[in-house]
């Protein structure tokens, strides 16, 4: 070889591809941003200082904790537990359970959350201010037979509860369960059939097989979409006013604005809180997904060593 360093190709110093449209887009965005900022500054109806003030008012903070955060938490707990149960029922060999799960999912997916909350809060209390728990048609039967009792075992004053966060969270949770059922079903179906068969071959009964073997593995598939559902639920707590639950973030901040004839700051105060809560949850979701995405096919490092050790037999 007689080639010298000079005629061998050296370090590459090429011109990068130009992206003129990117600059056009940046300019457009800059103009829009400037317009928005100019509106913030010149239109005093925005009144940001007052919006920040509304954010920390006691009723607003109370609405944040009891309405948004507790409401989301309660609804998601009900939704996840009931949803997993529905998924297991949906996949069961028992046609009655399958049917019940199907009808439940059908009903609660079809009915809007706002309507459901009105129905549970306002509608149900109109029908039953007090729940009588007893024999069906008990009052009619006892009247016909001339009994002294009306065959009611327990009473429960629903009207005392009907416009509390409990009913609100229940309503959102019942609705959420229908969606969680689909997510959990996909998760359960993602687990290899061989896992169930191995557990069965060991003599594990179906319930234990589900709890100990299938569900823990289904979690990998269930967790990421559940994070999305939780974030969506934060926003849906603003529907709680339909119950009506008035200890609710947006209702309180909006009302505060209205009372002081400062509509926009009231809306902005609520919006900023939703942005904050959802951002925190998104960060949480990121870490949760990283955790659950890990494991399973990884760590092949042990393989070569393992093969050597195995060779002794």
């Amino acid at each position: 070889m007689t080639t010298t360093t000079e005629d061998r190709p050296g370090r590459i110093e090429a011109r990068p591809v130009r992206h003129p449209w990117r600059w056009v887009a940046v300019a457009g965005i800059a103009v829009l941003a400037a317009m928005l900022i100019s509106s913030f500054v010149t239109n005093e109806r925005w009144n940001f200082p007052f919006a920040f003030e509304i954010m920390v008012q006691r009723p607003v903070i109370e609405g944040l904790w009891k309405g948004t955060i507790f409401g989301t938490f309660g609804a998601m707990v009900i939704g996840i537990v009931l949803g997993v149960l529905l998924a297991v029922m949906r996949l069961s060999t028992n046609p009655v359970l399958r049917g019940v799960a199907f009808v439940y999912t059908w009903f609660f997916r079809a009915i809007p959350r706002y309507v459901l909350l009105v129905l549970l809060g306002t509608g149900l209390v109109f029908l039953y201010p007090v729940f009588d728990i007893g024999v069906p048609f008990g009052q009619q039967i006892s009247a016909a037979l001339g009994l002294s009792t009306d065959l009611t075992f327990a009473q429960f004053a629903y009207r005392d509860l009907s416009s509390t966060i409990w009913v609100g969270a229940l309503g959102l949770g019942l609705s959420e369960a229908a969606y969680m059922a689909e997510i959990a079903r996909a998760g359960i179906l993602s687990v290899d059939r061989g896992q169930t068969e191995a557990a069965q071959a060991l003599g594990m009964p179906p319930g234990k097989t589900m709890r100990r073997i299938v569900l823990p593995q289904a979690m990998r598939v269930i967790v990421p979409p559940t994070g999305n559902e939780t974030i969506a639920m934060v926003k849906d707590t603003s529907l709680l006013i339909a119950v009506p639950v008035i200890v609710e973030l947006f209702y309180q901040s909006y009302q505060f604005g209205q009372r002081t004839f400062q509509i926009m700051p009231g809306i902005v105060a609520g919006t900023i809180w939703y942005l904050i809560v959802c951002s925190v949850l998104m960060v949480g979701q990121y870490f949760l997904e990283r955790r659950f995405g890990r494991g399973f096919g990884t760590a092949p490092a042990a393989r070569t060593k393992a093969t050597e050790a195995g060779g002794e037999h």
């Binding site: 290899d192 061989g194 896992q195 068969e197 191995a198 557990a199 069965q200 071959a201 060991l202 003599g203 594990m204 009964p205 179906p206 100990r212 073997i213 823990p216 593995q217 494991g295 399973f296």
Partner: peptide, 29 residues
């Protein structure tokens, strides 16, 4: 399930429980 307890089975594809260590796999049943 009770009848299967006295019959062990090994599968072509092993079917170990991937979320458990070897000792947990063995101790589970």
């Amino acid at each position: 399930a009770a009848q299967r307890r006295d019959i062990g089975m090994c599968f072509q594809r092993f079917n170990l429980f991937p979320h458990m260590t070897a000792v947990e796999n063995v101790a589970e049943a």
